[in-house]
Structure formats: C-alpha cells, structure tokens
Design a protein around this nucleic acid. Structure first.
Lengths: 115, 115
DNA sequence: GGATCATATCAGCGACCACTTATATAAGCG
DNA sequence: CGCTTATATAAGTGGTCGCTGATATGATCC
C-alpha cells in the first residue's frame, strides 16, 4: 500500500498524530480513536496493522501490551513528493529550505549507512 | 474529498507532477497519463475533475482547450499535517525550518497588501 | 451549416477497502 | 490450572471509487 493511501484514511492519520507525543499502547490508541470515530476495537487494530505493514509505526511488546511509536522515515516519500510544490508557496526560500533539508538528511545517513 | 484522498490516487499525483513545469492542456495531460497508466480519456477527465473540485488545479479556457495549472495552496494542508513529523527526520534543523517557512509565509502575505 | 476536434459527463459495473461480529493468541493473576 | 485482560486475526458484507463505452457540449474550420 502506497504511503499516500495509508494517509488517506482519517483514522490512520489520527493514530499517527497521537503518536507524535511518544509511545502509546494499542489500547490507549484504541480508546481515543474509538471514541472519536465510533468504530470497534478490531477496526482500530486493522488500521494499526496497515501502519505497521507500511512501516509507519514500530511496535514493542511490553507484557501483553503493544507499545506503538511513529517511524517518520516512512513519511519521507510523502514529504519528498511535496518538494516540487513548495516553490509555489514560498519561492524565495525554497532553495534554502531544500538545502537545509538535504543537510539534515545527509547527517542522518552518515550515521546509518553508506550514501 | 479530503486532500489526502485526492493524492491517494497515483494518476492524480502524476497529473500534479506534470503541472509543476507549468500549464498543460487537458489533451496533453491525457496523452501522457493514458500512455503511462493505460486508461481512457474519460478516466483522465474524471481525475481532472477531482483535482478541480478539490481546488488543486485551476483551469483556463483557451478556445476549445482547457489549460490546467497547479494551485499549490490546496496542498498546504498536507504539508502542514506533516509538520509535527519533521522533527523526527532532522531534529536539529526543525526549528530553523519552521522559522523559515513561517518567515516566508509572512513575507508573502506582507507583499500582497504592502510592498 | 455540417464535419471534426477537444473535453466533459453519464450510466453501469467490478474491485477494493473499511467495517462488523466472532474467535484466536497470549500474557497476567488468583 | 482456569479467568481475565490485551490485542490480533478471520470471515463476511456494504459502500465507494475508478474504470469503460457511449454520448453530450462546444469551439473550429471549410
């Protein structure tokens, strides 16, 4: 499933939003989202599965709980796709922004693997 | 239709990509996309409709041709949604990027009613 | 004014996705 | 061990979206 399809669903977007503040268990995510969207526990679980499969979340077992965290790397392609459109928003700063983004990315990559 | 749903379709993403270089007619867009995706003219036209309806493109009539251009403002919400996740990519530069983005936006707005 | 080109709309259909209910897995606890 | 809690999976279903083929709209050209 393409990253944009994953983000196409409002429940999944909300789940990712909730995770920006840090780890949350499946149960905690479910409680919030169930209330906000009026859907069942399995429905939420299935959304979490999509997020896992697409690499947008990482999961850690803690006893019987599953602690979810966001893996923002999987959102990169989305951000990258938007790149060419940024010049329409703030033409004068586009180049500088790109420069900075690229610099940040290179730094991370240097630490991870060859680039 | 939510912006993310609009971008969820690969044909529509491609159409927007093609428009980053400037105006193109419906026919030109159709030719490219038909070949790349193997879909019919009505299919492309329907995608263009979605892009119009969502405000992501503007259209200008030139004789019998419809000249499409990108209206990147409609992509803003998508970019904004990604905001909170940027800190995961390049934590050190996030603040600066935000600063620049904000500055750019303000400058544009000032420029529109002032100088 | 009729033929033709460019584009959009209509009607109908198939595929896929998100949902539900029911159930499985598996850890914790007495 | 059984009971409960936490979470995931399975099976089935309805709605929606994107597609096609046919057709409408409307400008252009002779």
């Amino acid at each position: 499933m393409h990253a944009f399809d994953v983000l196409g669903d409002p429940v999944r977007r909300r789940l990712l939003e909730l995770l920006t503040d840090g780890e949350l268990s499946s149960g905690e995510l479910t409680t919030v989202v169930r209330e906000e969207f009026g859907i069942s526990q399995p429905a939420v679980s299935q959304h979490l599965r999509v997020l896992r499969d697409s690499g947008m979340t990482a999961v850690r077992a803690e006893g019987t709980r599953r602690m979810y965290s966001v893996n923002a790397d999987a959102l990169r392609p989305v951000d990258d796709w938007l790149g060419p459109f940024r010049r329409f928003w703030a033409p004068r700063f586009a180049a500088l922004e790109t420069e900075i983004a690229r610099g940040g990315r290179q730094r991370r990559m240097e630490g991870e693997h060859d680039g």
